[in-house]
Design a protein around this nucleic acid. Structure first.
Lengths: 198, 198
DNA sequence: CTTGTTTTGAACCGATCCATCCAAAACTAT
DNA sequence: ATAGTTTTGGATGGATCGGTTCAAAACAAG
């Protein structure tokens, strides 16, 4: 029927996502995206209709890669709830200290985008809020289960503790991006876990 | 001798700082800076030599406005150490929920800049790291004093707890920028204080 | 008022921005 | 082969980017 593509759309999306992840939306030019994906401008604009759309899809892809497994971990019935939270934090630490292209963490595309765009791009803000709600719900459920099992302190509501853990995760990512070493970030996580134990 | 300026350099710097604070470095154009300061291009380039330099001075100015009083609070001998930390967190909450031009927090220029620039601008990263060290030292000193006084838990080193508090502050700012309401951010702060009490 | 210096606004600069266009190439289905 | 469709690379477009230049304007000092 017609000429087929010589590239894989998902691989291109992943490459674009990494570029946005590393440098943010504004600082990633269409030229950068061409180089990161190995595609020509035409192919990019033919496949993804604009830089903005490509970013939006990158954000969705990132959430799919990160939030989905994190939620799965938080809902794992094989593990005690507090252990799920602990493993979640450990996973965040690992994520910050692997794949450091220039010796510094990429941070988290979600956090990066909240900081860069949430204040002036309502659509991006909406995507981010929705993703955050999903994460908060999973965290809250795990923490509530832990409270009922007596292994997580009950002096605050599960929803509040979930927000707390979520904020600590963001703080760990900022710390890592700011140059903190692994031990420092691990100590932050451990202190947060302390705060959850009775 | 010569024609005097019709504007105040410090006011212009403050206006520029606010522009960078609201939109970040990349997304703030020189035109935006002209409009924010009310100056012409020539006046800006005559006074501050480049956009980059103006940003750097904005960063210094921000640190002067924020870090200096925060450190003063943390060193206030009139207050019990834990109370200093509590007040610091309260001040952060207040900062996030006043001056919200478009109904959303500006966040914190330091956090915003860590996320946007630390990975690819070594000079900015250096300024940020130095400021962070100052804040961490003050936090660590206050927490250490609280531990010796028995009002702050001693199961972790003061330096680790300082990093923890610092990360929570960053997390609160990200949460606020992401749309969290005041009660949610206050709960994060209160939970962090819980983590410090024995 | 003249002289000397600085500020100021507007025009201007090359570079780069995101995006489009188009013709040649590449492939399938007939 | 041929026809039909899509991809592809390169050229191109208008807008905006950060930054410079320059002459007119505005003031202080003599």
């Amino acid at each position: 029927m017609a000429r087929p593509r010589t590239f894989d759309e998902d691989r291109a999306l992943d490459a674009a996502m990494r570029a946005f992840w590393a440098n943010g939306y504004e600082a990633t030019s269409t030229q950068d995206l061409c180089e990161a994906t190995g595609l020509g401008r035409s192919s990019i604009y033919n496949t993804f209709s604009s830089k903005r759309d490509l970013f939006r899809r990158s954000l969705d892809r990132y959430n799919e890669l990160m939030t989905v497994p994190q939620v799965a971990l938080l809902e794992d019935p094989e593990l005690p709830p507090l252990e799920r939270v602990r493993l979640l934090l450990a996973r965040v630490v690992d994520g910050e200290f692997e794949n450091r292209p220039q010796g510094r963490s990429l941070g988290c595309l979600t956090v990066n985008t909240v900081v860069e765009l949430a204040g002036r791009d309502p659509e991006a803000a909406g995507v981010l809020e929705q993703d955050q709600e999903v994460r908060l719900a999973a965290l809250s459920a795990a923490i509530g289960a832990g409270q009922r099992a007596g292994e997580i302190a009950a002096r605050r509501e599960a929803g509040e503790l979930a927000r707390f853990v979520n904020a600590v995760i963001a703080g760990m990512r900022v710390a890592a991006k700011g140059g903190a070493d692994r031990a420092a970030v691990e100590a932050i996580a451990a202190t947060a876990v302390d705060a959850l134990t009775p």
